[in-house]
């Protein structure tokens, strides 16, 4: 059971920030407010599902700069921008950088809640994906050197015969390792192992 999502509200306007926190609370979310980009960055967000509600224009680093900083730090929290004055270049830049939405103040509740649910859905998706990746990488880490060498060759797309030749082992031994790999990596079939290897190939570690 994943914990309740936490919404991060970054806006220098105290009353709007408070109102947003109030609304989010009423809507059943946990929410924390930050008066500036710096305040948010000073405390790394806890590893919880959630998203960031970000004012574009703030004293000091702007919302866009925070978005970039989060990406650099590998914090994948989805970002919803709020702005008092939406101009096209800024919104394009924000969306390109992966923002979930770019909302103009004053924002409609349903619009906001809709954007929030999309953001949280994306977060959940990202979380699942990264969980899978993390699990797989830990599974990979659990492989013995010999198993790893055989998996690497499977990822490289080599046939059992080629692997056996490469490693100077018998074809039967290769097949045995393959079955063992399927168990260790949590895949049910040879086909699934091949797909996993394909994914690994596309995403070089």
């Amino acid at each position: 059971m994943s914990p309740k999502p936490l919404i991060h509200v970054v806006d220098d306007d105290e009353s709007l920030r408070t109102a947003l926190l109030e609304l989010l609370d009423a809507a059943g979310f946990d929410a924390t407010g930050y008066a500036s980009t710096g305040a948010f960055l000073l405390q790394p967000p806890p590893d919880r599902p959630g998203c960031v509600l970000l004012d574009v224009r703030m004293p000091g680093p702007s919302g866009l700069e925070l978005q970039a900083a989060l990406q650099r730090q590998g914090i994948s929290l989805p970002v919803i921008f709020l702005t008092g004055h939406a101009d096209v270049p800024t919104s394009v830049r924000a969306m390109k950088a992966g923002a979930v939405d770019f909302l103009e103040k004053p924002v409609e509740r349903d619009t906001l809640l809709d954007a929030l649910s999309r953001a949280l859905a994306r977060d959940a998706l990202q979380r699942t994906a990264s969980e899978e990746a993390r699990r797989q990488s830990s599974r990979l880490a659990a492989l013995t050197p010999r198993e790893r060498a055989i998996f690497d060759r499977i990822v490289a797309g080599k046939l059992n015969k080629q692997i056996a030749d490469d490693l100077g082992i018998g074809l039967r031994t290769v097949k045995a390792y393959r079955a063992q790999l399927m168990v260790k990596l949590g895949v049910d079939s040879a086909a699934e192992l091949g797909r996993l290897a394909g994914e690994m190939r596309d995403k070089p570690a």
Partner: peptide, 28 residues
Amino acid sequence: TASIAHEINQPLGAIQTSADAADLILQA
């Protein structure tokens, strides 16, 4: 103009959001 719009929008946004929050609380 931009600053002025912001100056006025800010409290207006806060009001709307507060009203929305109150609405939700009442509905709950």
